[in-house]
Design a protein around this nucleic acid. Structure first.
Length: 460
RNA sequence: GUGGUUGUAGCUCAGCUGGUUAGAGCGCUGGAUUGUGGUUCCAGAGGUCGCCGGUUCGAACCCGGUCUUCCACCCCA
């Protein structure tokens, strides 16, 4: 009995057309990464269990794919945890590796391990798959690609401004107009929590605030209260719910609220600098928006926070995100190494571009010239012609068998080949080949010796 | 992790309150057309009804479990 084939939940196969489109996105993003001075690295699909655990919060730990040890792993384990059905205690006993959950923590590990070989500030980019044991949904997979660019070893806001430009150029290069670059600052969030007297409830406060767009002010306030934030504190935060206007106007309004918080004012100064610099440099495809409700990755971000929203009308979670983390390498023993980075979510960008019909049609064409096979002798001549064309950089192929001509034409049609070459008995006798323009339906004849005339027509 | 949803031919889907041989369109194969695709006509192949178990004289249909899909949470790219 044949086994019914399947792949794990949340994973996908990619067809030739899909790979061509994914590569299109990757190439454009990579081009911008390199134009901005980033260098590529790659890291293993698996990291040591201890490298990953505890870096993404409790929720993150749950979503990390753990790899079962090989061999007779039970004999080495302390099985009391198994008897008590305590998965949390048992897992480290039987697993010492895990699949990469993101590209940032492996990068931090890389920087610490290779610190003596690196030139700081070190600018790296990395385009690789990551794995999360999440429940799949549209735009949410268990295996997906991230495209990250990070800089470590430099402080200041110049780099943040660079990343805003990088985002914008990449989306412009992809032809994806209308994305929103949301900007916030961890110090501003901390400052708010400080001045309203809820500094110890920072995460609960920001997580609730983050839902403002989705559930509205009343429910946000109710959730804050439910998390133990006092009514008095919530009342003090009222100006947050009424922020309006341009980024500068919002910053002005926040200065009033945060005047009692040194770090809050520091965050506002940085945001103001970033907004001003971005205004001076200009944006091609994206708009910058100050969003005080943006609260992501608070486990390690310490400065500016970025998130990218798809163009309006496209139902998709964030298609990118990033921020500054002052001490990510500290946990691996390298202190005072400030970093800042951004990430592009390849799979979500793909879905957005597909929905908006932004992929170039030429991506569907994998072959420029297709040569019909009429039999042994004709095929010999055809093969030589095909090789000549390939040497010119033209994608050309010869059908492998002398199948019916109708069938071969149908094949060429399916593969969207623009030109079909015929070298049959007649052509062979006269030393020529016939070219059919599949779109126009016209046919021309060239001498085999003058094949470059045909090549010139394809590549003027 | 919580709650819901989906699964029938390669694809998109019909299939009544359980009842004989499970259908359509598209696609596929062959032919009309032994040197011409995308149009047309004719013929044909193709299905353990996701999987396991249960109820029943009888299950694609009812029940339980499981896997999968999609959705809302949680969280996130």
């Amino acid at each position: 009995m044949a086994q019914k084939p399947s792949i794990p939940k949340g994973t996908r196969d990619f067809s030739p057309a899909e790979v061509a489109r994914r590569n299109f996105i990757i190439e454009r993003i990579r081009r911008q990464f390199e134009l901005f001075g980033f260098q590529p690295i790659e890291t293993p699909a698996m990291e040591n269990y201890d490298t990953l655990m505890g870096k993404y919060g409790e929720e993150g730990d749950r979503l990390i794919f753990k790899i079962l040890n090989s061999g007779d792993f039970l004999s080495k384990a302390d099985l009391s945890a198994l008897q008590q059905a305590d998965a949390q205690a048992l897992t480290p006993q039987i697993s010492e590796k895990a699949l990469r959950y993101d590209l940032t923590v492996p990068f931090a590990r890389y920087v610490v391990m290779h610190q003596n070989e690196l030139e700081f500030p070190f600018k790296r980019y990395q385009i690789q798959p990551v794995w999360r044991a999440d429940r799949p949904q549209r735009g949410r997979f268990r295996e997906f690609y991230q495209c990250d660019a990070d800089v470590v070893g430099a402080r200041g806001t110049v780099q943040e401004a660079e990343f805003i430009q990088l985002y914008d150029r990449a989306f412009a290069d992809l032809g994806l107009q209308g994305v929103t670059l949301k900007l916030n600052h961890r110090k501003v969030l901390s400052g708010i929590a400080e001045v309203i007297g809820a500094a110890d409830r920072l995460v609960d406060f920001t997580v609730a605030l983050d839902k403002l767009d989705k559930i509205g002010r009343d429910k946000v306030e109710a959730e804050m209260e439910g998390k133990g934030i006092s009514r008095e504190a919530i009342a003090k935060a009222a100006p947050l719910f009424e922020l309006k206007g341009t980024a500068s106007q919002k910053i002005e309004a926040l200065r009033g609220l945060l005047s009692g918080s040194a770090q809050g004012m520091e965050g506002l100064d940085e945001l103001e600098t970033l907004v001003a610099r971005t205004a001076a440099l200009g944006l091609k495809a994206a708009t910058l928006e100050l969003d005080i409700t943006l609260a992501r990755g608070l486990n390690y971000y310490t400065g500016a926070i970025f998130e990218v929203a798809a163009p309006e009308g496209v139902n998709m979670g964030s298609i990118g995100g990033g921020g500054r983390y002052d001490d990510l390498t500290g946990i691996f023993g390298l202190q005072d190494m400030s970093g800042v980075g951004i990430s592009f979510g390849l799979d979500r960008i793909y879905l957005v571009m597909e929905q908006l019909g932004l992929f170039p049609q030429t991506l569907d064409r994998a072959l420029d010239v297709f040569c019909v096979n009429f039999g042994q002798q004709e095929a010999d001549a055809a093969q030589q012609l095909v090789l000549n064309l390939r040497n010119r950089g033209i994608r050309a192929d010869l059908y492998p068998t002398a199948a019916k001509v109708g069938k071969q034409f149908k094949y060429a049609d399916r593969r969207a080949v623009p030109y079909v070459v015929l070298i049959g008995e007649e052509e062979l006798a006269s030393g020529t080949f016939t070219v059919r323009d599949m779109q126009g339906g016209t046919q021309d004849t060239y001498s085999l010796n003058a094949w470059e005339q045909f090549a010139d027509r394809l590549q003027p």
